[in-house]
């Protein structure tokens, strides 16, 4: 077994996350899909770090984690704000800016 198995797992995870974002309408589940995609990218970074025998990939994964954490904080605050005015988690209901 070579490291490409990890990359395949990463690709599959990324596509599952993408499916969550594209096919679900619940804002929270879409957010979880984004988290899955970020994690898939992390796995690829760590795999490349192992393949190239450098720690830079792992540092990049740490950075991705920080970005994911901030993204979740702001995103969930946005979800709560939308929920307050719309009383709905469905992303199709937030269409006030539509002309």
């Amino acid at each position: 077994m070579s490291l490409s198995a990890y990359l395949i797992v990463s690709a599959v995870l990324f596509c599952i996350g993408l499916a969550g974002v594209l096919l679900r309408r619940n804002a929270l589940v879409m957010f979880m899909g984004i988290e899955l995609m970020l994690n898939a990218a992390n796995l690829a970074l760590v795999t490349f770090s192992e393949a190239h025998a450098e720690l830079d990939g792992q540092v990049a994964a740490v950075f991705t984690m920080v970005v994911a954490a901030t993204e979740v904080v702001v995103g969930l605050a946005i979800i709560i704000t939308i929920f307050r005015s719309k009383a709905s988690l469905n992303v199709d209901d937030a269409r006030r800016l539509r002309h």
Binding site: L3, A51, H52, A53
Partner: peptide, 15 residues
């Protein structure tokens, strides 16, 4: 992408 890596395991030990 999956075929892009050639290295094996255990390279990171010394690093």
């Amino acid at each position: 992408v999956a075929g892009a890596v050639s290295g094996g395991f255990g390279n990171l030990d010394e690093v």
